[in-house]
Amino acid sequence: MAMGVAFFISVMALIFGFYLSKGHSVKRKLITWGIVFMAGLAPFFSFLCGIAFGIRVGDGFAGGAVMVMLFVLFFLIGLILTAFGIFKKRKPPLNSHT
Rank of each mutant, 00 (worst) to 15 (best):
M38L: 03
R56F: 12
F53T: 13
R90S: 12
I35Q: 14
L41W: 11
A83G: 03
F47G: 00
F75Q: 10
S46T: 12
G85R: 10
A39K: 08
G50L: 03
F84Q: 11
I35H: 03
G60M: 08
I35P: 00
G64I: 12
L81Y: 03
C49S: 11
L81G: 04
D59W: 08
C49D: 10
L81M: 06
G64L: 13
S46V: 09
R56W: 14
D59P: 04
F74H: 12
F84Y: 13
V68L: 15
G34P: 09
G40E: 11
A52D: 10
I86C: 00
C49A: 11
A65K: 10
L41H: 08
R90V: 13
A65S: 07
L41D: 15
I35W: 07
P43H: 10
V36D: 01
K88Y: 14
V36G: 01
L41I: 15
A83I: 14
F47S: 03
M69C: 14
I55R: 02
A62Y: 12
L76P: 09
F44K: 09
F47P: 00
I77M: 14
R56I: 12
G78Y: 00
L41T: 06
G63I: 10
F75L: 13
A65N: 04
P43G: 13
F45N: 08
V57T: 02
G54M: 02
P43D: 13
G58I: 06
G64A: 09
F71Q: 02
R56M: 03
V72Q: 07
M67Y: 08
G40I: 01
K89E: 11
D59T: 07
G58A: 02
G34N: 12
L41Q: 15
F53R: 03
F53A: 14
F71P: 01
V68Q: 06
R90Q: 13
L76A: 14
L79P: 04
A42L: 11
V66W: 08
D59F: 05
A39S: 08
L70P: 05
G40N: 13
W33E: 03
L76R: 15
S46I: 09
A62V: 14
V68P: 13
I55S: 00
G54N: 04
L48K: 09
G60F: 12
G78K: 12
F71N: 08
L79C: 12
G54Y: 05
G63D: 15
R90W: 06
A39G: 07
F45T: 05
M67R: 03
G58S: 00
G63N: 12
V57L: 00
G34H: 10
D59Y: 03
I51E: 06
G78S: 08
F44A: 04
I77N: 06
G60T: 04
T32P: 04
L70T: 01
